[in-house]
Structures are given as C-alpha cells and as structure tokens.
C-alpha cells in the first residue's frame, strides 16, 4: 500500500511539474500589412507563385515585456486578405493560396489559407484560413518565407502581376 502511494505520489508530482513547465504561454496578435508580391512574367495559365521574406522579432512584438530566452511555442493564422496592387486587379485570377516556410530543415512548409474560387468582381480576397495549420516551428527562427500562389485562367505575357497581402497571426510566446 505504501509502495503504491509512494509511486502515485511521484507520478502526481511529475505530472504537476510537466504541466507547469508546459504552460500555455502568452498569446499575442501579430499583424503584417501591405506585404508585396510580384508574380514575375511571363506567366502561364495555372499556378504562379511569389515569395517574400519577413522577420519576426519578439523584442518588437513584446516591447518591454520581452525577456531573453522567450520563444514562439505556437502560431496560427487568424486572417489573410489579398489586395490587387496593379491596374489589372483580380482579372483572370481563379484562386489564391498562402503558405509559410522556413530554412529549418526539420520543419515543413505549411499551407495556411486558400480562396478557391475567387468571387467575381471582388475588390479584395478574404482567404479562408486553416486554424489547424500549426506555424509555430516555422516562426521559431524568426526568418519566415511567405508564399503567395495565384492560379491564372490564361497566359499573361505582358509583364508582372502584383498583389499585397495583409495577415494576422496569433503567436503563443513562452
């Protein structure tokens, strides 16, 4: 009986320690606006991608609350909206996909938002985000590649197509 209680006690203390060490952390909203993407022509009917690099600096995100050793433990995309950034608007665009990637060899690229099909005549494209897409490991190193894919209905040989992206992330910081 004593042995059982002792074992149970050790297990209980261990669970308590794990729980306190793996606390949820603080949640912060992080917004990125007017991120520019240029699909470089000539463009062919079908998917065409553009990428932009961003840096997430926790000292900037947290301000005075930042302490050395803090890191992003979880990140989720909350909103993503694409805007046209040239005179062609969304002409001949069927769909958009937003994905995130990092240089970390152990972390895979993750698609996080999609709009398919795009509504005709829309002035902006509010993408459907995938809340289950876990972006924490991608954000962890600070340097993140944001990838915008646009599906074109027809070839476009006369230059580039330009867009802007606004998005918000929910960062959990420990």
């Amino acid at each position: 009986m004593y042995k059982f209680l002792k074992t149970a006690g050790i297990v209980a203390v261990s669970v308590l320690m794990v729980t306190s060490c793996s606390g949820p952390g603080e949640v912060h909203e992080y917004a990125v606006n007017d991120l520019e993407f240029s699909l470089e022509g000539p463009l062919f009917a079908g998917p065409n991608g553009a990428q932009t690099e961003i840096s997430i600096d926790l000292a900037d995100v947290l301000g005075e609350a930042f302490e050395e050793g803090m890191r992003i433990s979880d990140a989720r995309l909350k909103t993503a909206t694409v805007f046209p950034h040239d005179s062609l608007g969304f002409s001949q665009i069927n769909a958009f996909v937003v994905a995130f990637a990092s240089d970390n060899e152990d972390v895979s690229m993750q698609e996080a938002a999609v709009k398919n099909p795009l509504e005709e005549g829309a002035a902006e494209a509010v993408l459907d985000v995938a809340p289950e897409a876990e972006l924490g490991e991608i954000m962890e190193d600070g340097k993140v590649y944001v990838v915008l894919d646009a599906d074109l209905a027809e070839d476009y040989w006369d230059g580039n197509r330009d867009f802007k992206l606004n998005f918000t992330l929910e960062l959990t910081i420990k």
Partner: peptide
C-alpha cells in the same frame, strides 16, 4: 470543376486547387 485536394488530412485545406499544389516539399 477544377480538382481540389479532397484527400488532404486537414479538412480546412481540402479546397486547395490540385493544380498548383506543392506535392514535393522541403
């Protein structure tokens, strides 16, 4: 209709266009 990734393990991403899908990654 244009095919989408209907077998994606993440139900939120089953509307991803298959044409354009990154099937080789990292």
């Amino acid at each position: 209709k244009p095919r989408t990734d209907i077998n994606n393990p993440n139900p939120d991403l089953r509307n991803l266009p298959l044409r354009g899908f990154r099937m080789c990654k990292d």
